[in-house]
Computed example of a mutant assay.
Amino acid sequence: MTITSQNVAVDASAVAQAAAALVPSTVPLTAVPCAASDVPTGLDAVVATFVGAPSADLLFVAADALADVEAAGAAAGARLAPGDALRPALEAAAQALGAGVLEQVRTEPVQQVLVPGAEVFALEHDGVAVAWFAVRVRAGQTAAPAAPAGRVPTQRGSMRMLYDVDMTLTAQIGRTTLPVRQVLDLVPGTVLELDRAAGSPADVMVNGRLIARGEIVVVDEAYGVRITEIITDEDGR
């Protein structure tokens, strides 16, 4: 299913399937087109806006898809917000749309945000819908203008529309992988061994994408990162 808005074509089915693959469900989910009327009302939707070319609103109605995750959190005495649980799925949908920025995830009543023009998909397992996903390309988005003859458009020019968009940068000193059982057993004082040697540079990330490396410094009693390396597309990142 393809949405076309002002010369911008979006493969809504591919976006929905990318999102479905990262929903934290204990069973695999498949995105199947459905009507907006199939989405139950009276529930909250997890929503995020993607700013790019095209820009789009992304929406999840989790329903029963997060039941196991919520139960595991409750057993550990913690509550995982639906927006946090679905953030990876929203980021996957954003990547399927192309270059751009995924704004802050928010929660709103589904009847207020599921507006006309959205392509809606049931996220099903064995024919049973356990969640719903919708994508709506924002009106007025246009494809990048063609460059004059003899000129090649630059990345800086194509990104000009995003110059005033705030982006969240994250410094990552390392990571590790643990089964859910061990995560639920974490207590104050637990030491986690990361996959990075002491003194190694930290990774600077934007929406999960590596853009730079740097060393950790202290600035006015707050942590900071001094950039030592800029990562380009040619680095294969």
Rank of each mutant, 00 (worst) to 15 (best):
V51M: 04
A72Y: 00
P40Y: 08
T107L: 12
L59R: 06
V46M: 12
A81N: 02
A94G: 15
D84T: 12
V110D: 04
L58W: 04
L58G: 03
D64Y: 04
T49P: 00
E91F: 02
L97I: 10
L86T: 03
A75H: 08
A36D: 10
V47F: 09
D38A: 15
A96P: 07
L86G: 06
A75W: 00
L66W: 01
D68W: 01
A35C: 02
A56D: 04
T41N: 07
Q17D: 07
A81Q: 11
V69A: 14
A92M: 11
D64K: 15
D68L: 02
A48M: 10
A94F: 02
E70D: 06
L102D: 07
A21N: 13
S25A: 15
A14F: 05
A18F: 03
L58Y: 02
A56P: 00
T41M: 11
P54H: 05
Q112F: 13
G73N: 05
A31K: 03
A12F: 09
Q95K: 09
D68C: 01
A93Q: 08
A81I: 00
T41D: 08
A74T: 11
A71Q: 10
V110L: 05
A76P: 03
V69W: 01
D84Q: 14
L58S: 03
E91K: 07
P116M: 08
A96W: 04
A18T: 04
P116S: 14
A72S: 11
Q95F: 04
R79M: 06
L43P: 00
D57A: 14
T41P: 00
E108C: 05
A62Q: 10
A75N: 12
A78L: 13
A72L: 13
D57M: 09
A12S: 14
G77K: 10
D57G: 07
Q112N: 15
A118R: 08
A31W: 07
V15T: 04
D64E: 15
A62E: 12
A14C: 01
T41Y: 00
G83I: 01
A14P: 01
L102C: 10
Q104A: 15
A74K: 13
G52H: 04
G117P: 08
L80R: 03
P40S: 06
Q112S: 14
R106A: 09
G100M: 04
A62S: 15
A99L: 12
A92D: 10
A74R: 13
